[in-house]
């Protein structure tokens, strides 16, 4: 079962923020995340993992929780960037993050503002348990 998920891994990226272009940059032929069997999808039902990044207000958090509920088991969350990780200008008081963390478990954090594409690939591979060459 885990082997199947490892070899064909679907990612859904939500939110908007600086990290997004770095995440989607991994699609291009220089980084080529697809060779590990990782695809970007657009429907929550098909996603194995939810990538949370960027800026959220109260409405955005509710939407993300809805999306997470629609995903099928087994599922997980990867948080990217310092907006979701800690308190900063675009996340004042970090109330929303704590509210978010109380509801779901974040499986992996990728620090950086924004993290480089290599960092994202490294995190995904670490998540899948594939050793980097």
């Amino acid at each position: 079962m885990s082997f199947l998920i490892k070899s064909n891994f679907n990612i859904l990226v939500t939110g908007f923020g600086c990290c997004k272009q770095e995440i989607f940059a991994t699609q291009c032929s220089l980084y080529d995340i697809q060779r590990f069997g990782v695809n970007f999808v657009s429907v929550p039902e098909d996603a194995d993992i939810l990538v949370v990044q960027g800026f959220y207000n109260k409405k955005g958090i509710i939407r993300i929780l809805n999306i997470y509920d629609r995903m099928k088991n087994p599922k997980g969350i990867i948080a990217v960037g310092s907006c979701v990780l800690n308190e900063n200008l675009f996340n004042p008081g970090s109330e929303l993050v704590s509210q978010f963390r109380n509801r779901v478990i974040i499986n992996m954090h990728i620090p950086g503002c924004p993290p480089r594409p290599e960092a994202f690939i490294y995190a995904i591979l670490k998540f899948l348990g594939i050793s980097m060459q």
Partner: peptide, 15 residues
């Protein structure tokens, strides 16, 4: 643009 309203009016105050 409801979901995009992130920043308050006086974010620059203490910076």
């Amino acid at each position: 643009i409801e979901i995009a309203r992130i920043i308050g009016d006086d974010y620059y105050k203490d910076l």
